[in-house]
Structures are given as structure tokens and as C-alpha cells.
Amino acid sequence: MACQDCSGGEFWHKLGRCAGCMVGCALLALVSGLIWWRLGADSSVPALTALLFLLGSGGLLALHLLVWSWRRLTGAGQHDDEET
């Protein structure tokens, strides 16, 4: 990744810190949802593949938003930034 928050560290430490990554996940979820809907949202192989892509990108976006909101509510992000 291009930003400093995403270039190093463990996966769990990267969640919810980078607005660019969250926007990217939102765009991926939007595009995959549109592709799934365009393919008919049925049980064909291409539609199921698009659905799995939607679930993966939407799940990653949900994790980002969950950790971001937890850090905002508890103030945990301020303590992590001071240590680095």
C-alpha cells in the first residue's frame, strides 16, 4: 500500500486507520455489488463469483468501519499514534 499506516505492521494494526483504504474498500464493494446485480443476482457461476467478491470486500469494509468507530469512541487511536 502507498500510505505509511498500511506499509508496515500486522494486519490487525492496519484496520481503521487509513481513510484511503476505507474508500477503496467501499468502491470495491460498490463495484462488485453492481456487477453482481448486473449479472442477474441468480445462481449462475459468474453471479456467485461476483457475490463472493462482494462479501469479501464488504466484509473488509465492515471490519475497517468497526475498528475505526471503536478507536473513535474509546480514543485508542490517539494512544497508538503517540507510541510510534
Rank of each mutant, 00 (worst) to 15 (best):
V31W: 12
A29M: 15
L65A: 15
Q4N: 10
Q78V: 12
T74H: 04
Q78S: 08
F53K: 01
F11V: 13
Q4Y: 05
A41S: 14
P46Q: 05
L65V: 14
G75A: 08
L52Y: 08
G9R: 07
L48E: 10
G33I: 09
D81N: 10
W70V: 10
A2L: 11
L52S: 14
C6P: 07
S7L: 09
W12T: 14
L60I: 11
W12Y: 10
L52K: 06
C21E: 02
E83A: 02
T84K: 07
R17G: 00
S44L: 02
C6A: 11
F11N: 01
L65Y: 01
G16P: 02
D81L: 14
G8K: 12
V23C: 11
C6Y: 11
L66I: 04
E83V: 03
W68G: 00
C3F: 00
G8N: 07
W36M: 03
R71H: 09
M22V: 05
S44Q: 03
G58T: 04
G56V: 10
L51V: 01
V67P: 02
G20I: 00
C25M: 15
A50R: 05
G77C: 05
G8W: 04
A41W: 13
W12N: 11
A41P: 05
W36F: 06
L61P: 09
S43Y: 12
